[in-house]
Design a protein around this nucleic acid. Sequence first.
DNA 1: TATGGACCTTCCAATCATTGGAAGGTCAAA
DNA 2: TTTGACCTTCCAATGATTGGAAGGTCCATA
Lengths: 130, 130
Amino acid sequence: MTIGELANESGVNAKLIRHYESIGLIPKAARTESGYRFYKESDIQFLRFIKRARGLGFSMKEIKKLVGLWRNKTRASKEVKSLAQEHILDLESKIREMQEMVDNLKSLAKTCHGDARPDCPIISRLEGEK
Amino acid sequence: MTIGELANESGVNAKLIRHYESIGLIPKAARTESGYRFYKESDIQFLRFIKRARGLGFSMKEIKKLVGLWRNKTRASKEVKSLAQEHILDLESKIREMQEMVDNLKSLAKTCHGDARPDCPIISRLEGEK
DNA sequence: TATGGACCTTCCAATCATTGGAAGGTCAAA
DNA sequence: TTTGACCTTCCAATGATTGGAAGGTCCATA
């Protein structure tokens, strides 16, 4: 299986697969005589694993840990769970932050008449009034 | 006023002030004979403006626009408002995405017993079961 | 006056995850 | 044999910031 086929099957593009190899997230692929990387079926599942973890917003660092836990069949579910829970807390705090931004912006936008006049409370607030 | 003093007053550190100058967000500072940048009082307000906008999650690109609108006293409030509203939509869509991640992770974490046993639904799900 | 330390300068590199391009080699079918 | 789709490596950009190195300047104190 070439890198392109693996990319199709896994949904992770070839460029990114090479990149993952270069940062050590996935092992170095075997090569054909001419230097092409080749892969086996089980590599599809591996890349999908990574893709799903990215989809849940895990960082590459966290994914490295997850991959380690995944590969190690004797890992404790405790470790996995606590990794997930830390990540939940991270996400929630970012959500709160962004929600505050939205709330602020909405209240500013509401008081801005939004016509051709130059007066705008959004700008005034950024200027430091209040 | 030196760059360090400006940094103190504005809350934007000196390194970042230089960086903002280099990307053209703020004009090139005047220099003393020995090459030190020097600033006037009104620069404090300017940097605070930028800092507040960053605090609301605007990108540097958006901030460049905001700065332009701010400086141009005849700008229409409409432009400012629509910039803000686009940004609100951006933020809200990111929030939704992250909230979905959290929901997924929470439901996975709930079914993970979190003890010393190796079985863990979080891992299974990443593997592709279901 | 000398020296120390706090400040300033520029430039280059790292972060994070990914994408892009350039320049070249390989493969398979027409 | 030529075309075109694929593969290879390497280098650079993204966005916002931070870090360090190597060096110059300023001011106060010994």
